[in-house]
């Protein structure tokens, strides 16, 4: 603990604020990386020729090709 306190005291003014900014940037990076990884996984699936399964619609019926 004493060592940690010494380290804090030897840091220039504003260093703690800089740590807070770094932590904030890390949080932003984590948040955006989730979206990025989502897109990457989609691209990888496309490359692998995998198409996600389609959802069957509700509210439709088979129909004759003739109208009327």
């Amino acid at each position: 603990m004493e060592t940690k306190l010494d380290e804090l005291q030897t840091r220039p003014a504003g260093e703690n604020a800089g740590l807070d900014r770094r932590d904030f940037l890390k949080l932003c990076a984590v948040a955006t990386s989730g979206l990025f990884l989502n897109k990457v996984s989609g691209w990888l699936n496309l490359l692998a020729g995998q198409k996600p399964p389609l959802k069957e619609a509700r509210f439709y019926r088979r129909a004759d090709h003739l109208a009327g």
Binding site: L54, A57, R58, F59, Y60, R61, R62, A63, D64, H65, A67
Partner: peptide
């Protein structure tokens, strides 16, 4: 070729196999 009739909205699109409804996002597959 099996058509389908979508009953979701008043358009009642009659969609041929391989086609889509007027909304562009509902498709007849097999």
């Amino acid at each position: 070729m099996q058509h389908v009739e979508c009953l979701l909205c008043p358009r009642h699109c009659r969609i041929p196999e391989g086609g889509r409804g007027d909304c562009r996002v509902r498709a007849n597959v097999d």
